[in-house]
């Protein structure tokens, strides 16, 4: 610190403690209410100290919202999106940054523009693809007369169909199809000095070797950051899973189940069960962020520049 200023230091701590309270209140209320009995949670005003019913509330919530299979679904989706993104984005960013070919900038912008429009904004059109993801290719074949040509020649009409409704691919792929990861990798790859590429050329390694032996090991921190960001954002997805899964029993995710846990208008106000459920649903991404904070903060920041 530059100079001693006890009064300002006091203000600093006071503000930070106030901030701490502000940030923690929802977490605290969730824990407190989740650990109380129906009777305790219905008290007005609420007793702000945890009680001993957390486990049984979690059990009730777990059964009511069928959280077991839903947890597994959420995990599959989050891990799927995260791995998919890490792999695909690394490949595409590698091509864009380290190769010189004519359509380089075009490809970059084609991918980059997807950053601008989050899934929620283009939800209606994206949903239209869900019934048949191969429709674009079918249309291409139809427009160029290839379908009828093939039909004439072989007598078989080509129909491409791939229904994404109620499937893991449907839950995962559209979330992978955005530029966050590509952009993050690109920002990092741009900071790799030219000399390093040249040194590896002088040492006799080609692009693939360079990718696996130099680039990937150097990207470890960025991969962890991307993994954290992607895990959190895909676990927390709400709107897309809501649309793509009509068969909730088999393909629903935990976040979709939150609404089912809220007490009905005229039902029993068992908020204790609701909060216990909310607690375990928000826990996995919170743990990931808390554990990975150092790396993920760095990754998130580098996205800006």
């Amino acid at each position: 610190m530059i100079e001693r200023s006890p009064i300002f230091d006091f203000i600093t701590y006071a503000t930070m403690i106030l901030g701490l309270v502000l940030v923690l209140v929802p977490f605290w209320v969730t824990i407190v209410a989740g650990s109380q009995s129906l009777q305790e949670v219905s008290q007005v005003p609420l007793n702000l100290w945890p009680s001993g019913h957390l486990l049984e509330n979690i059990q009730t919530a777990w059964a009511r919202a069928d959280l077991g299979p839903k947890m597994i679904n959420s995990l599959i989706v989050a891990v799927g999106v995260t791995t998919g993104k890490i792999v695909l984005a690394a490949l595409s960013a590698f091509a864009i940054v380290f190769f010189n070919f004519k359509a380089r900038m075009l490809c970059f912008w084609l991918i980059f523009i997807t950053l601008m429009l989050p899934l929620e904004v283009r939800i209606v059109p994206t949903y239209s693809i869900a019934a048949n993801a191969l429709l674009p290719f079918q249309t291409l074949l139809d427009t160029f007369g290839i379908t009828s040509l093939l039909e004439m020649m072989s007598g078989v009409r080509v129909t491409l169909e791939w229904n994404l409704l109620n499937s893991y691919t449907g839950l995962i792929l559209p979330l992978v199809a955005t530029a966050t990861g590509t952009f993050l990798y690109r920002q990092f790859f741009m900071t790799i000095p030219d000399e390093l590429v040249e040194a590896s050329k002088m040492d006799g390694s080609g692009p693939i070797r360079f990718f696996f032996e130099v680039l990937l090991p150097l990207s470890r921190t960025n991969m962890l950051a991307l993994a954290t960001i992607m895990f959190v954002s895909s676990w927390n997805q709400y709107l897309w899973p809501l649309l793509i899964t009509t068969d909730r029993a088999n393909f629903g995710t935990v976040v979709m189940q939150l609404k089912a846990l809220i007490p009905a208008q005229n039902g029993t106000p068992d908020w204790n069960v609701t909060m216990a459920g909310a607690l375990i649903i928000m826990l996995p991404p919170l743990l990931v962020v808390a554990l990975m904070q150092r790396w993920f903060v760095r990754g998130l920041i580098s996205r800006d520049k």
């Binding site: 940030v23 923690l24 209320v29 609701t274 909060m275 909310a278 649903i281 962020v289």
Partner: peptide
Amino acid sequence: VFVWPYAIAAPAAGVA
């Protein structure tokens, strides 16, 4: 701690 809200799903915070 100030970073934590980033990790929370909007609907989960909504319930709380």
